[in-house]
């Protein structure tokens, strides 16, 4: 493998890392912030695998295995934390936790906050399909 090929892969890794960084800095949904951080890890993994090929040394691939292990741990912990935070504020918005800012910082305010029902997109709904199942009597069902 030539240095030119190595450089191509390093460029892809760098671009993934930069994209993940921008996503982490801008997005307000906690889950998307976490996924952006995972994308940065993917960029690093591309780098490591490319170096492993270039140098003919499997150490790089072994390090990617460790990245996978750490990412799995991180996902478990982050999921638990996000669920706990969601239970308390009923929102995935990171701006709901502005009291964690530095004491001398002004709180960030939305310049154009959206009203409660005014969201740009509608979530998909399943179309009802088939006939509704016939309801049986409660006694008949409770044979457990």
């Amino acid at each position: 493998m030539s240095p030119a090929t190595l450089q191509n892969y390093l460029l892809v890794g760098a671009a993934l890392f930069a994209l993940g960084m921008v996503g982490f800095l801008t997005r307000r949904n906690m889950i998307l912030m976490f996924l952006s951080a995972e994308m940065m890890l993917q960029g690093v993994a591309v780098n490591l695998v490319a170096f492993a090929k270039y140098r003919g040394d499997l150490g790089g691939q072994a390090l990617v295995l460790f990245i996978l292990a750490v990412a799995a741990c991180e996902a478990a912990i982050a999921l638990a934390l996000i669920l706990m935070l969601y239970k308390r504020r009923k929102s995935l918005d990171i701006s709901a936790w502005q009291e964690l800012r530095e004491p001398d910082q002004e709180p960030v305010v939305d310049t154009e906050p959206l009203a409660a029902g005014e969201a740009g997109i509608d979530f998909q709904h399943l179309t009802p399909a088939g006939a509704a199942p016939a309801r049986k009597d409660a006694e008949e069902v409770s044979h457990v």
Partner: peptide, 8 residues
């Protein structure tokens, strides 16, 4: 439904 945090 969609929240305002995802819209900005």
């Amino acid at each position: 439904g969609a929240s305002s945090a995802d819209q900005s």
